[in-house]
């Protein structure tokens, strides 16, 4: 069995998502289930309840400490967003955080992912997007494939970084050469196994390209740009220092105004600092 088969196999052995998330998803999909019923499901898990309340009150959502119950959180933030917060918390806690790859730790990668989530949500909001629930989650999950490599092929992954640095090639190409599969492909396989919505699967698979096989996609473009901005602002660490040039397609897709990113900078850094503290520290 070669390394890429071994890695794909490892996905089948990965734990399924916690039952809590599946029960919540079912409850949300059931049009007759009330917010009270949903709140009661979350309340069965004490640590999730606490964390959901903290995240709901973080500056990211703008309620500034006014939410003091899960049912309020559902009311103000919305069912789907709450479901996504539970999913985020479940995924982060389902991976161990012990591995240290010469200064590249999963915790730094999670910090990078949180940054991309925070930036994506902020940009989408600034662009007038109404349905904001998927942006944070998409950012959090975009590099999930790298987490799998760190967990299941840490020695080989070390070689990936050495090769990328030595030959000055992008991580995706180095991954292909050494592991036979890149982090976008393996991440999408995991997301599929976890039945994460296809819109998010597309982000995982195409975030480095900025579009779905040249077809414009707003969410994919935002995460593509946010990933670059997280590197620019040095929020978290994803394994390399070089800042990539954005794919030209995103400017037409997003129609960003000049100076918008600069004006969001302070809020982004503030939201990031708060959210990282809440979720991983």
């Amino acid at each position: 069995m070669n390394i890429s088969e071994k890695l794909i196999n490892s996905i089948n052995n990965l734990p399924t998502l916690p039952t809590l998330y599946n029960v919540i998803t079912e409850a949300i999909e059931d049009p007759y289930s009330t917010n009270t019923k949903l709140a009661n499901i979350i309340l069965t898990d004490q640590s999730t309840t606490m964390k959901v309340l903290k995240v709901a009150n973080s500056p990211l959502y703008g309620f500034h400490g006014k939410i003091d119950s899960i049912s309020d959180a559902i009311l103000y933030i919305g069912r789907n967003e709450i479901k996504n917060i539970v999913l985020t918390l479940s995924i982060i806690s389902s991976f161990s955080k012990r591995i240290n790859l010469k200064g590249f730790r999963p915790i730094d990668l999670w910090a990078h992912s949180i940054a991309v989530g925070v930036i994506s949500r902020n940009i989408a909001q600034a662009l007038g997007e109404k349905k904001l629930e998927n942006y944070f989650l998409a950012g959090i999950l975009h590099d999930i494939g790298k987490i799998i490599f760190l967990e299941y092929a840490v020695e080989e992954y070390k070689k990936v970084f050495e090769l990328a640095k030595k030959k000055e090639i992008i991580i995706n190409d180095a991954e292909k050469q050494i592991l036979g599969i890149n982090h976008e492909e393996i991440g999408q396989l995991l997301a599929k196994k976890w039945r994460i919505p296809e819109t998010i699967q597309n982000v995982i698979l195409y975030h480095s390209k900025g579009s779905i096989l040249k077809t414009p996609d707003f969410l994919v473009s935002i995460v593509h740009l946010s990933n670059i901005i997280a590197h620019i602002l040095e929020l978290g660490y994803s394994g390399y220092d070089i800042i990539q040039q954005p794919s030209p397609i995103i400017w037409d897709t997003l129609k960003i105004k000049k100076g918008m990113i600069t004006s969001l900078k302070d809020k982004i850094i503030n939201d990031y600092t708060n959210t990282v503290k809440l979720i991983i520290l």
């Binding site: 030209p248 400017w251 100076g259």
Partner: peptide, 16 residues
Amino acid sequence: IKWIPTNEFEEELISL
């Protein structure tokens, strides 16, 4: 940054 900006947004990214 090993690329040359092609529009004002990329210039903004470089200045950031």
